[in-house]
């Protein structure tokens, strides 16, 4: 569980995060949504420890990040997995090399133990015959799956994903969403996903936080988002005609 209390962050005098408090539960897919410039990425980078908040605290299962020593922070980071928007795979390494990298860096496993673990996670993300290919030789969807495999290879307690299905076709995007949700539930991970994708909101939004201008405007689940009367949320989520019609049908059905 990640507990966030009154996080504030400014850049060059501009307040980007204006006191966000929330809780991300274990075993759930927690989504952060909001328009571009709403502070989602800065918030995610604060959770990852890449940015230090000006004020407020972030607790990872009771451990307050700002109170930890450098060594403890490093150890905590090894319990985090991250899937970047552009996958951020290492160009110079093969798929297998990318997934093995955290094991080589932080464990004392033998070569065969590492190989078993790499095979297991690549199998788990349904990548069986891409071991020796380089990132430039595989599709965007496969790159995302490699990024997920790399993120989970160390058995993380926390998984962060920044726009995990951006640039993917709708079918692959749903596969990636479902894969993240399955992994979250299977390994009891606290997953935080930064997304614009409304399909993700509807499909895997077990908890959703809506940010607007650096403030938490609304929070709830994908079931509650249909019922909300919050104008900012409905304007954002139901901005397309299709989603407006879906919501209208839902309201009519409810009445």
């Amino acid at each position: 569980m990640i507990e966030v209390e009154n996080i504030q962050k400014s850049f060059d005098g501009t307040r980007v995060l204006k006191g966000i408090s929330t809780t991300f539960n274990t075993g759930q897919t927690n989504l952060i949504i909001g328009q571009s410039g709403s502070g989602k990425t800065v918030f995610l980078k604060c959770l990852l420890g890449l940015f230090t908040p000006d004020e407020g605290t972030i607790c990872y299962d009771g451990k307050t990040y700002s109170d930890l020593t450098d060594d403890e922070k490093r150890n905590l980071r090894q319990e985090m997995g991250m899937v970047f928007q552009g996958s951020a795979l290492f160009d110079s390494m093969t798929v297998e090399g990318n997934v093995r990298f955290p094991l080589e860096m932080f464990t004392k496993q033998s070569a065969s133990e590492m190989q078993d673990r790499v095979d297991f996670v690549l199998n788990r993300v349904n990548l069986v015959d891409a071991h020796h290919k380089f990132p430039s030789e595989i599709s965007g969807g496969m790159q995302k799956r490699v990024a997920i495999a790399r993120a989970i290879v160390m058995n993380p307690k926390y998984l962060f994903c920044d726009e995990p299905n951006s640039g993917l076709d709708p079918k692959t995007a749903i596969l990636i969403d479902n894969l993240i949700q399955e992994i979250t539930e299977e390994y009891d991970i606290t997953t935080v996903i930064n997304t614009h994708d409304m399909n993700s909101v509807m499909e895997i939004g077990q908890k959703i936080i809506f940010l607007k201008n650096g403030v938490k405007e609304w929070e709830g689940s994908n079931k509650e988002i249909f019922k909300t009367d919050n104008e900012a949320v409905t304007n954002f989520v139901y901005s397309s005609d299709l989603f407006k019609k879906v919501r209208q049908m839902y309201i009519e059905e409810r009445n």
Partner: peptide, 17 residues
């Protein structure tokens, strides 16, 4: 620089490297 642009350096830092 390319590693910075493509977030590969961020990936290293997130891992604790």
């Amino acid at each position: 620089g390319t590693m910075r642009v493509t977030e590969q350096i961020d990936a290293l830092e997130v891992m604790g490297v």
